[in-house]
Design a protein around this nucleic acid. Structure first.
Lengths: 214, 214
DNA sequence: CAGTCAATCGCACATTCGTGGTATTTTCAT
DNA sequence: ATGAAAATACCACGAATGTGCGATTGACTG
């Protein structure tokens, strides 16, 4: 163990898995596992007195605080700390939650030890190691994220006015900002309502957000 | 070239790159490039008369129809057709758009030929090959997607009323639906506005969508 | 030229909103 | 019992909305 070696913390409640993986890491040149914890809470007790590690390997299904919640809390300490998830969970919701909270990589526990070591090196090189099946799932998640972008044939001016309305301006304020008569804005909004099939501000704002009209 | 070999189409306007990569693929056991096109439009002319390929390698910056638009149109032919992006673009918007339209992988043109061949094999094995820098960027995109869920201390009743207001009901309509006096709804809404620091319907609806208040 | 569309402007007015203020009752915790 | 929070209700009124109707001008196209 040398000062330049990469310091890794592991948070994993299965003690056999934790010990065997710690051994692998400690036997790998250039890295060492200074701590391995069975829970996030344990890690946070130590974090107050020591420097943050260079990487965290984090399970999700943990006693007490889950790995997802753990990401949140680690992120309050450092936005850049690489956090590689190492878990059995591959359902969409868990993957999505972990990534949204800021996971830097996502491996499954059936990964070989070589793959895990390679992934540690990858995250150090600026990558984002993902299990192959997870990568596929991640890309599929984007299709679900895609907002249905609708087209109601709004004119340029109508969109301009709509943006200001959605931002909370009254008709008179919109008129003042665009150097128009109040009546002009009123007419445009009337036309917008007809095109969008709504008749209230609430309706129009909802539609803008739900259907990405800009 | 055998019947079981993987049929790949390439869509790439740089003819030198297109030819050299086609050669690499044709020299790789188990795969062949039956067509290489300089534009999406050319590919769609052929697609009407031939079977779809097993994989498409797709550039983004193309003459005429862009690769992003091309994904959309290929997806109308097949939801499962693997489409690997091979491009110089690594800006967030382009990556995001390509993935949302259904890209199955995303490589950069500085990838080695070995990496490209390996990625083809990876997508066939059910993966989603991503350039390392792109993978990192993709995970960062999730943090941006995460909606900041805020808590303004709204009571149960306030949330109930807010939902109906956001859905487009007038105060009187809300009162009728909840068997309350108009004045009660008015008071609740007054309190909601104070808690959310807004003073218009547009403001409150925007806040609900931006900050996931329900 | 005629027709269409977009932009601009106006009238009229019933309806609704937003906000300042007030009050009572019920429920829960100390 | 007391106090706080939530729920309910009310008054007042200027500001703003939503919708029916109408018109003119400019740019573009066939």
């Amino acid at each position: 163990m040398k000062d330049e070696d990469i310091n890794i913390w592991m948070i994993e409640d299965n003690s056999r898995y934790r010990k065997s993986l710690t051994t692998v890491i400690n036997n790998t040149s250039g890295m060492f596992c200074s701590h391995s914890f069975p829970s996030c809470e344990d890690a946070f007790l130590v974090i107050e007195n020591e420097n943050l590690p260079d990487i965290i390997l984090l399970d999700i299904g943990l006693p007490g605080m889950s790995g997802i919640e753990g990401i949140q809390k680690f992120r309050s300490y450092s936005a850049d700390l690489p956090i590689i998830i190492l878990t059995i969970h591959e359902d969409n919701d868990t993957v999505f939650d972990a990534l949204c909270e800021g996971a830097s990589g996502y491996l499954l526990k059936d990964s070989s030890q070589e793959k895990i070591v390679a992934s540690i090196k990858e995250v150090l090189a600026g990558g984002a190691p993902l299990n192959m099946r997870i990568a596929h799932k991640v890309l599929k998640l984007f299709s679900r994220i895609k907002v249905k972008k609708s087209d109601y044939g709004l004119t340029t001016r109508e969109k301009e006015i709509l943006k200001l309305i959605v931002a909370g301006n009254t008709k008179q304020q919109v008129a003042d900002k665009l150097f128009l008569s109040f009546h002009t804005v009123n007419t445009h909004l009337k036309n917008i309502y007809t095109k969008l099939h709504v008749n209230t501000i609430a309706g129009v704002v909802s539609k803008v957000y739900k259907e990405d009209l800009f």
